[in-house]
Design a protein around this nucleic acid. Structure first.
Length: 412
RNA sequence: GCGGUCGUAGCUCAGCUGGUAGAGCGCCAGGUUGUGGUCUUGGAUGUCGCGGGUUCGAGCCCCGUCGAUCGCCCCA
């Protein structure tokens, strides 16, 4: 047992039902995002460390202690991407696409974070995400959110998932609010939890998010951002909510939502569920202005979200959404010398676009049992002369027919 | 990085106050040169996560370690 190779901590294999769910998440999201005009980009899985260090801001744990960074043989500092947005912004600049805005991007793939693994959280995990790059209009925020909502619905997991939105305001609002929060929490500093005392130094808004009982009482009396919003920031947030209502996307205001990464401003949102324990955020995002500039491009107002594929798969499993592979047709040679005729038939079926299988070995009983296990919907018995009988494995009906008739009947 | 719980067959799990392993499912083969999902008979599979300690003797007790899991932190 000890010599058995195991995947490294925080990684895992996706096989069978897990693999099918994972694939369904990516495929459903890709297709749905396509309906909204998003096109998929494939950016590298690793980047120059500066792409993330600069992009995400150094107050986040993601940068300060969770990155998989290493020096390559040429002496460059390389980092396995911990999230998708920074790489997409870098690619926008690298490819000169700042001249052709807006760009609507979909991505899906592995991300890496050195964290303590938990259910729905791995060191190699997978995200899907979309970004609208180069649109300052609140309509873009609403469109991005609506697309996310449609994906959750298409996956059948929208039940029990709630959209919570908030605004972080523009720079002026944010600074004023931050000052107010520091004042409020400093006044109660002695009653704050240890974690929140640290937050007060690093990122006071994070205290709003605290799960500590004692903190919550202090948070309850904390000011909300509304009084500190500039008129522009307030009307922007109003507009986003108006479009969401127009699009029929239900939401609820949660003034305690903050974002983990530094680049966010204005709209912040999370799709949350209570079915996943402490990994309740299923899709999260918001507006970010300034990230593209960090990559050396022009100011490019943008908005997007990312979702954890593992968490979406977990939700699919919880609601019993179990994608099945297509039901094959089982081709079964009958009698001596029938193998050649059967093989030629199975190949013709496949070329006609029909999912067909023929077992490598086994007697008739074994082949039938195997057909059953594969959930085959029909069996085609072929004899040495090439004569075919088709049996419907659901109804049990069986009759002889020609090869062409069989292909036609099976939808080829 | 911190705290709680748990590691026995491919899977789900049982195993008494310590006496060197069991069930169900699954798998393989037979009953059936022949038409499946039913039934029936038989069979294979474990250094009891790993390492050390206590003991005449450890799956069970102790220590360590690795892994999973739950919560914190953080985040999707």
């Amino acid at each position: 047992m000890s010599s058995k190779m195991q995947p490294v901590r925080g990684t895992r294999d996706l096989i069978g039902a897990d693999a099918r769910r994972h694939h369904a998440v990516a495929e459903t999201a890709r297709r749905t995002a396509g309906l909204y005009g998003f096109e998929e980009w494939f950016t590298p899985i690793f980047e120059d460390t500066a792409v993330f260090a600069r992009g995400l801001g150094d107050t986040s744990d993601v940068v300060s202690k969770e990155m998989y960074s290493f020096e390559d043989r040429g002496g460059d500092s390389i980092t396995l991407r911990p999230e998708g947005t920074a790489g997409v912004c870098r690619a926008l600049v690298s490819n000169g696409l700042t001249q052709t805005l807006p760009q609507k991007v979909f991505y899906a793939g592995p991300m890496f974070r050195y964290e303590r693994p938990q259910k729905g959280r791995y060191r190699q995990f997978h995200q899907i995400g979309i970004e609208v790059l180069g649109a300052a209009e609140p309509l873009a925020d609403a469109e991005v959110i609506a697309c996310g909502w449609q994906i959750l619905n298409a996956l059948g997991v929208a039940e029990g998932v709630v959209l919570e939105i908030n605004t972080l305001g523009d720079a002026a609002s944010r600074d004023a609010y931050r000052a107010a929060l520091i004042e409020h929490f400093s006044a109660h500093q002695d009653k704050l939890s240890h974690d929140s005392k640290v937050r007060l130094e690093k990122n006071p808004q994070r205290i709003l998010d605290s799960k500590d009982e004692g903190d919550r009482a202090i948070v309850a009396t904390a000011p909300t951002i509304d009084a500190y919003l500039t008129p522009e920031a307030a009307s922007f947030f109003e507009a986003v909510q108006g479009y969401l209502t127009l699009f029929g996307v239900p939401f609820r205001r949660n003034p305690r939502i903050v974002r983990g990464l530094d680049y966010y401003s204005h709209t912040a949102f999370e799709f949350v569920t209570d079915r996943l324990g402490s990994q309740g955020t299923v899709m999260g995002g918001g507006r970010y202005n300034g990230l593209v500039e960090e990559m050396g491009g022009p100011a490019t107002p943008s908005v997007g979200w990312a979702a954890g594929m593992e968490r979406l798969s977990l939700l699919m499993e919880a609601v019993g959404n179990d994608p099945r592979p297509p039901r094959p047709v089982a081709v079964i040679p009958q009698g001596e010398g029938a193998e050649t005729a059967a093989l030629s038939l199975v190949q013709k079926l496949r070329q006609a676009g029909i999912t067909a299988e023929m077992a490598y070995r086994g007697n008739l009983k074994r082949r039938m049992e195997r057909a059953n296990r594969q959930n085959a919907h029909a069996a085609l018995f072929v004899d040495a002369a090439g004569a075919i009988e088709m049996k419907n494995l659901d109804s049990g009906d069986q009759y002889a027919l020609s090869e062409d008739a069989a292909i036609a009947a099976l939808g080829g």
